[in-house]
């Protein structure tokens, strides 16, 4: 029998309807056939939702956070080396330590290593594009990678995805799971991208990294900051 009851665990705030995209996003065609047609049924959080998988520092290898090294076969990957760092917090501003972050992205030519990617741009034999790390005691993470490029995706005529990095996070519980994408500041493709534009105004900016001269390293790499905010605690915890 379980030793922990749901009464011992904090409840979590719901999806924020102001910042989260709807199931169906205008102009994003596959969201029509691939999203539920009926509203989700509210679920009072139980032990099942308040617990979650634990992947700590034992789950990562030393080079997992450095995408300029973890896919090397015979040299350095091509492209612009960048540092992407930030803090994982919850809505109440609490740092989220020891949480696993997984990222994946295309290379500097706009090509994913994924075998299903048919874009006619070169594979980089020295770049894999996947990485991960675990946040430190202050909820901070840091990746070294190559700046990804735009690529065509066929959603509409002449459709190009803005350069982005995919992020996947667990947070402290099953309900704090988050998968998102992070974009680069000033990209003119953002205004034409239905996936990015599917996030309501004014919260789209939460998806865009900031250029940060403090993170930038002399003679090495430009630095970007991307903080990630997970669901916070419920004001009044509910009993499961």
């Amino acid at each position: 029998m379980s030793e922990t009851s749901s009464r011992d665990l904090p409840g979590y705030a719901p999806f924020d309807p102001e910042t989260q995209p709807d199931w169906v996003v205008h102009g994003y065609h596959s969201s029509v056939s691939r999203s539920p047609g009926r509203p989700a049924i509210p679920l009072v959080q139980t032990l099942s939702e308040l617990t979650g998988p634990v992947y700590g520092h034992g789950a990562v290898q030393p080079l997992d956070h450095d995408l300029t090294q973890n896919g090397v076969t015979d040299g350095a990957p091509l492209g612009e080396r960048i540092i992407v760092t930030g803090q994982v917090l919850d809505e109440d501003g609490r740092a989220q330590p020891d949480t696993l972050i997984e990222i994946w992205q295309c290379n500097s030519a706009g090509r994913y290593i994924h075998t299903a990617d048919r874009h006619d741009a070169p594979i980089d034999p020295n770049f894999f594009g996947g990485g991960r790390c675990v946040t430190d005691g202050r909820g901070c993470y840091r990746f070294i990678t190559i700046k990804p490029a735009a690529y065509p995706w066929g959603n509409h005529p002449n459709a190009w995805r803005p350069a982005h990095i995919h992020f996947s996070l667990f947070g402290p519980a099953f309900v704090t799971r988050l998968v998102t994408q992070s974009y680069f500041p000033g990209d003119p493709l953002l205004a034409h991208d239905p996936i990015y534009m599917g996030t309501p105004v004014p919260f789209r900016d939460l998806l865009v990294m900031d250029y940060d001269p403090e993170v930038t390293e002399e003679g090495f790499a430009l630095g970007y900051r991307f903080d990630i905010v997970l669901r916070g605690r419920r004001a009044t915890p509910l009993e499961g």
Binding site: F15, D16, E18, T19, Q20, P21, S31, L89, D90, E91, D92, G93, W104, C106, Y112, H114, A116, D117, H166, S168, L178, V179, T180, Q181, I195, Y196, T199, F203, R204, L206, L207, D227, I228, V229, L230, R231, G232
Partner: peptide, 13 residues
């Protein structure tokens, strides 16, 4: 108070 980072699709890759 911080606002939740918006979710984005996992995509095909």
């Amino acid at each position: 108070r911080r606002r939740q980072t918006p979710s984005q699709t996992v995509g095909p890759f």
